[in-house]
């Protein structure tokens, strides 16, 4: 039983780690601010949830489980808020989403242009 919990917990932590790596790749590869924020927030919420759940399986049930729950609750409160604030700031400073707009693939694909976006008219 304990061995099974060990494997489940370890597996969840490993999946969370892979999830976070996927998020990091997304931050580097996605074309504009909004999709990058989306990728970054995946590591904060999905990756952290999976890892904390895995840790809860690995730890002895008790006070540690409760602490992990509180950590999870704070992460779920703060990181989506941070992503929201970031996206909101990007929107009000004039960044436009580039998904569905293929301009960045035609010559204008320097990383500078991809991060900066265009100012709103």
């Amino acid at each position: 039983m304990a061995d099974a919990l060990h494997w489940v917990g370890g597996g969840l932590v490993a999946i969370g780690a892979i999830w976070s790596i996927m998020g990091a790749v997304g931050v580097l590869r996605f074309p504009d601010v909004y999709t990058r924020i989306h990728a970054a927030s995946l590591t904060d919420t999905g990756g952290a949830t999976l890892m904390l759940l895995g840790m809860a399986f690995l730890a002895e049930p008790g006070i540690v489980t409760l602490k992990l729950f509180f950590v999870w609750a704070f992460v779920m409160l703060t990181t989506p808020t941070a992503s929201n604030a970031l996206a909101s700031a990007a929107y009000s400073s004039g960044h436009r989403p580039r998904i569905g707009n293929f301009e960045f693939m035609r010559g204008n694909d320097s990383p500078e242009a991809a991060t900066k976006g265009e100012s709103r008219p």
Partner: peptide, 15 residues
Amino acid sequence: MGDHHVVLRVISKML
């Protein structure tokens, strides 16, 4: 903060 920062305000009030 414009109106679209209501999330930030609510969460900060909690935190």
